[in-house]
Amino acid sequence: MHKTKQIIVIALVVVLMGVLMAQPIKGLVKRDKAEQEQQTNTSTETEAINLASVSSVAKQGLNASLVKEITDLEAALSASSGEERINLLKKLAGHWDDLAKPAPLGFSYEEIGKLESTYDNWLKAGDAFTAAYENLQDTLVAPALIEHAQQAYQKALDLNPKSLDAKTGLGTAIVNKGGAPMQGIAMLMEVVKEDPQNLKANMSLGMFSMRSRQFDKAVNRFKTVIEIQPSAEAWFYLATSYENIGLKAEAIKAFQQSKAIAADPSLSQFIDRKVDELSK
């Protein structure tokens, strides 16, 4: 499952890399009127997106027996309360987790958190929302998912103020939301100051460095990520950062490492073209 997810992420990276390079972090540059209006509409979008709406989308493409089982659970939920409702929600969350459907998984844990407000429940909700919006960055749904992620991580952090996982998730969500990016960056910097080998915080800082075109800083972050846990995604981002600061030989080596780990035909073809371009 992890390898499949990694290949999907890399494929999305290949398609969206041009868009990523063209869009600095919101708030680090002057926002135009359309972007300001988008921020204003976020709360409305958040209200419109809920467990029922994302569940309806997530069921598409599932086999009939699974759809029936989930629909029956949802029907039982509507007439439940207390401990019974919590148990049904946990069972529903288990289904969405098994199916790798992070959006309804996030909303399931959000509902669990409202009834059983624990650090673990809110952290799971935040992590699921984060996975969901990272896969939907080019859709209108993403801002609402980011908002839910931020709220979940804040609740987790309130319950466990020393949690680096909650602080990393919250900082990442704040930057992606766009209202006060430097606040989020500061939180991520606090995490890596306390834990220099924090995988998620370094990965987020690397991505944000790319988006603000600080590729030298991105290189250092992705090198740290690779030292901790090598992945096709990290090697790909490192290669792209090297390419943008003119280190062609280093970029070629990093692209080849990404290709070797991912073992994905579409990515291999893309990297072969990149290597050919960089070798000229």
Rank of each mutant, 00 (worst) to 15 (best):
G27A: 08
N160C: 02
S117H: 04
G27H: 06
D97K: 05
G27W: 12
K217M: 15
K33S: 11
T172M: 11
D276Y: 14
L145F: 08
L62Q: 12
N41C: 08
K33N: 13
V141I: 07
L12H: 12
M21F: 14
I185C: 06
V191D: 12
A239C: 11
F215Q: 09
R273S: 10
L238R: 03
V54M: 00
Q256Y: 01
A251L: 15
E243M: 10
I25R: 02
A239N: 11
R31H: 10
A186E: 14
L159D: 05
K253S: 11
A166R: 04
S209P: 03
K124Q: 10
A186K: 09
D72H: 02
L12Y: 09
I86S: 00
V29W: 04
Q257D: 13
W122R: 01
N244S: 11
R273K: 15
A263K: 00
P181H: 10
P181T: 13
V219L: 01
V219W: 05
N198I: 06
G246L: 06
L99Q: 08
E250W: 08
F129G: 00
Y153M: 10
A64D: 14
Q150C: 11
A22C: 04
Q183N: 08
D138M: 08
E147Q: 10
A131D: 10
E250I: 03
E116L: 14
K223T: 10
R273H: 15
P265D: 09
L123C: 05
L66Y: 05
V191K: 03
D72Y: 05
K280A: 07
T4G: 03
E83A: 15
A263P: 00
A125M: 04
G169P: 10
S56A: 14
L20K: 05
L267S: 02
E69L: 11
K26F: 08
I146Y: 12
A64G: 09
S212T: 11
V67G: 09
E233R: 15
V13R: 12
T240N: 14
T44Y: 13
T40P: 05
I245C: 12
L92E: 02
L238H: 05
A79W: 07
K217D: 15
A100V: 12
T118E: 01
V67C: 08
L247H: 15
L88F: 03
Q256H: 01
G82Y: 03
N87M: 13
N244C: 01
W122S: 03
G113T: 02
S55H: 06
A76T: 03
V14K: 10
Q154R: 04
G113P: 03
H2D: 09
T240D: 11
K91G: 01
T4C: 02
A166I: 04
A93N: 01
S268Y: 05
T139P: 14
G169S: 13
